[in-house]
Amino acid sequence: MDLILPSSGLIFWQLIAFLALLFILIKFAWKPMLAALEERETSIDNALKAAEQARNEMASLKAENEKLLQDARLERDTILRKAQEASAKMIEEAKSEAGKQGALMIENAKAVIETEKKAALTEVKNQVALLTLEVTEKLLRKNLSEDKAQKELVDEFIKDLKLN
């Protein structure tokens, strides 16, 4: 067989076998394989994009969280401040209220004491008048004869009473 002259038999077999190989490989190997590769590349691409997106979302979420936290802190501070102010105010109010209440109670107590004192004095006066009457009665019964002495005595009593 010649080196540089193609032989028809080999061309024949080569043509048939190569075309068969081409057909089988295209149908059963290259097409499914290229499709799978493309699918994989797309899915890798998508996964990378999704990861990137997730990262971005994560970052924005983090920033948002940070902001929320900051807001919450500010809010807490405000609330605390307000609460302190409120409690201080309440204490102040309670104090002044208590002071007023105390003063009022003292006032009332003084008034009651005054009334009681007056009532007691009136009572004492009444008692004294009663006693005086009894004493007078007794004296009158005993010393009706001695008119002069009686008169003196009565005057004296009256004097005393007036002094009272």
Binding site: A20, L21, L25, A29, W30, M33, A36
Partner: peptide, 12 residues
């Protein structure tokens, strides 16, 4: 051809 077929088909 057999070897190429084997390689390509088993890869696919």
């Amino acid at each position: 051809i057999a070897l190429v077929l084997y390689m390509a088909l088993s890869a696919a």
